[in-house]
């Protein structure tokens, strides 16, 4: 079966500077793939390229075999590409539930007018989506906080909300940009079991992280980038002991 996501020789230049240079990788469904590298290696740029927030300078991005290199961000989102943000981007004044609810947008079928006038179809759909959102909140163990203002919660909670929102999209591909930064081990562990179960449902996950231990325990395949280039890939054990990788991390 074709991998869910494939990058073929993707490059992105800013001015003359290559932020990403000739990167190729593939993210299969049902597995957690890792993308690691020192700071400034271009990892978030890769995410922005995949999700359509940045133009590609060259190369191709394929989603389930379809060329989406020119697709705009909302199209990609509607096609089932979800992401979390490195600097948390939630709606701080909205409740946890409302934040999660916003992720269900791509599944809304009711038209604009029905929503405007509050027709029964809109009411039913909204009620249904709220239920699903609540289920998600419960799955993440934040039932008590559902109605709380998202901006006032702890960092760890906010990261979980971001993940919930991404999951609400019921995506086929999730790009997780440093999802456990700032979390303690217990929190990170509970999140990783959720990621495993999501992958088991057939979703493709691309995990961008610094936390090596977290990455090692979760990922079945690793890509290592430095200065925008791929410097190593493969099995996590093999990669972590690769001298080139060690050099890149220590040297940065």
């Amino acid at each position: 079966m074709r991998p869910t996501l494939e990058l073929e020789n993707v490059s992105r230049h800013f001015g003359g500077v290559p932020a990403v240079d000739g990167l190729s990788l593939s993210v299969p469904a049902g597995q957690i793939t890792g993308l690691i590298g020192p700071n400034g290696a271009g990892k978030t740029t890769v995410v922005n390229l995949i999700t359509g927030l940045l133009h590609l300078t060259s190369g191709r991005v394929l989603l389930d075999g379809n060329d989406v290199s020119r697709a705009e961000a909302p199209e990609l989102a509607r096609a089932g590409v979800a992401r979390t943000f490195q600097n948390i981007r939630l709606l701080p004044d909205a409740s946890v539930l409302d934040n999660v609810l916003s992720g269900f947008h791509r599944h809304e079928r009711v038209g604009l007018w029905a929503n405007l006038l509050g027709l029964p179809s809109a009411r039913i759909e909204t009620a249904h989506l709220k239920e699903e959102a609540m289920q998600l909140v419960e799955r993440f163990g934040m039932t008590n906080l559902a109605k709380h203002r998202a901006g006032g919660l702890s960092y760890g909670h906010q990261r979980r909300i971001e993940v919930m929102r991404a999951l609400a999209m019921k995506p086929r591909l999730i790009l997780l940009d440093e999802p456990v930064a700032g979390m303690n081990d217990a929190e990170a562990e509970s999140l990783s079991s959720i990621f495993r179960s999501v992958a088991a449902e057939g979703v493709a996950l691309l995990l961008i992280e610094h936390n090596m231990r977290f990455v090692m325990s979760l990922c079945s395949h690793l890509y290592v980038v430095a200065a925008g280039r791929l410097i190593a890939q493969g099995d996590p054990q093999k990669v972590s002991s690769d001298p080139i990788v060690v050099q890149a991390y220590l040297g940065s």
Partner: peptide, 11 residues
């Protein structure tokens, strides 16, 4: 609140 998020959610 955050147009980039809106775009990323498919709105």
């Amino acid at each position: 609140e955050d147009e980039m998020v809106a775009v990323s959610l498919g709105i």
